[in-house]
C-alpha cells in the first residue's frame, strides 16, 4: 500500500473517519518522512475538498519538492563531481553507475579513487572502472585522499576529460576531522578545476538521521544534489521529501539495484504518484 492507499479513494467522498486519518498518518510515518512532515501533509490533505482528491494531494505533495534543477552541471573544459556520504550507503557503486550513465551520453569521464581508507575500496572502484571502460586514478592505500584527488584532476585535465568523478571514503557526519578532510579535498581539486556537483549518497533504508546527514554535509561541502540508493528494497526513503522541503536539495538520481544500469535520473512526478498509488 502506498502512502495514502485507501484514503485517496475516500477523500472525494464526504466523510472520512478519524480512523482513516489515523491509518493515513501511520502509513506516512512508516515511509520515514518524519513526524513533523506527516502532520503537515495530513493537515494539507484535510483541507482538500472536491472531486479530484488525488490531484489535490499530488499538488500538496509537489509543494514539498525542491524547485531546483535536477540536471547535472557540466562546465567545459573540465568539471569535477564529488561523491560523499556516510559509510555503507553505496558511494563507490553510485560513482561507477554515474560514470557509466554519463559515458553513455557521450561525456568523457574519469574516476578518482578517493576512498583510501576502507580496505579494498580502491580495488572495488578499479573493478567497476575496467567493467565500464573508464580510467580510475588511484593512489596507494592509506595515502592522503586530497593528494589522490589532485593527481586525478591533473590526469583528467592532461587527458582532455570533460568530467572527473571523485569517490570519497565514507564518513560519519559527526566526525568533524573527517568532514574537514572533505573540505580539503574539495579545495585541492578546485585549484585545477571547479567542483560543479557535490552529490550526497543517502541510503533509502535510513531514518530521520538522513536529515542530519544532509544538513551537516551541506554545511561542510555544499551538497548540490542527492543520490538515493537501495530504492529497490522495501524502504521508500521518505526522508528525502523532508530534505527537499527543508533544505531544497534536489534528488538527482536513484539507485535501484546492484547492476551498473540500475540507476535512473530522479523523476519527481513518478515518485510522488508512486507514493500515492502503489
Amino acid at each position: 500500500m502506498g502512502l495514502f492507499g485507501a484514503l485517496v479513494a475516500k477523500l472525494s467522498r464526504s466523510k472520512i473517519s478519524d480512523l482513516d486519518w489515523d491509518q493515513a498518518r501511520r502509513e506516512l510515518l512508516a515511509s520515514d518522512i518524519g513526524p513533523a512532515l506527516t502532520d503537515h501533509v495530513i493537515e494539507a490533505a484535510k483541507k482538500i475538498k472536491g472531486d479530484d482528491a488525488r490531484a489535490g494531494l499530488l499538488s500538496a505533495l509537489s509543494e514539498l519538492i525542491s524547485s531546483k534543477p535536477r540536471g547535472l552541471d557540466l562546465q567545459p573544459p573540465l568539471s569535477v563531481f564529488l561523491i560523499v556520504g556516510i559509510n555503507g550507503t553505496g558511494k563507490t557503486t553510485s560513482a561507477a553507475k554515474l560514470a557509466h550513465h554519463l559515458k553513455a551520453t557521450g561525456v568523457s569521464v574519469a574516476l578518482g579513487a578517493g576512498d583510501t581508507f576502507r580496505a579494498a575500496a580502491v580495488e572495488q572502484l578499479q573493478t567497476w572502472g575496467s567493467r565500464i571502460g573508464v580510467d580510475v586514478i588511484s593512489g596507494k592505500e592509506q595515502s592522503e585522499p586530497a593528494s589522490v584527488a589532485f593527481d586525478a584532476v591533473q590526469f583528467a585535465r592532461d587527458n582532455q576529460r570533460q568530467l572527473l568523478i571523485v569517490d570519497t571514503a565514507g564518513r560519519l557526519h559527526n566526525k568533524s576531522d573527517l568532514m574537514n578532510e572533505l573540505g580539503k579535498i574539495k579545495r585541492v581539486i578546485e585549484k585545477i578545476a571547479p567542483v560543479t556537483e557535490v552529490l550526497l549518497v543517502l541510503d533509502a533504508t535510513t531514518g530521520q538521521n538522513a536529515l542530519t546527514q544532509a544538513k551537516v554535509f551541506s554545511e561542510s561541502v555544499g551538497v548540490t544534489g542527492l543520490i538515493l540508493t537501495k530504492m529497490d528494497g522495501s524502504a521508500k526513503g521518505g526522508f528525502a521529501l523532508a530534505v527537499e522541503n527543508h533544505m531544497s536539495i534536489p534528488i538527482k538520481f536513484i539507485g535501484t539495484g546492484e547492476a551498473i544500469g540500475d540507476f535512473q535520473p530522479f523523476d519527481s512526478a513518478a515518485y510522488l504518484s508512486s507514493l500515492l498509488d502503489e
Partner: peptide, 30 residues
C-alpha cells in the same frame, strides 16, 4: 541509523534466513 523500514527488513530476514542475535553497527554516529 535504519528508519521505519526496520520493521519490514527485520521481518524479511527473520522469515528468510532466521537469526539468533542482532549486531548494531555505526553506533558512533549521532
Amino acid at each position: 541509523m535504519i528508519g521505519q523500514d526496520a520493521v519490514k527488513t527485520a521481518q524479511a530476514f527473520k522469515v528468510g534466513v532466521g537469526f539468533d542475535g542482532v549486531v548494531l553497527t555505526k553506533l558512533d554516529g549521532d
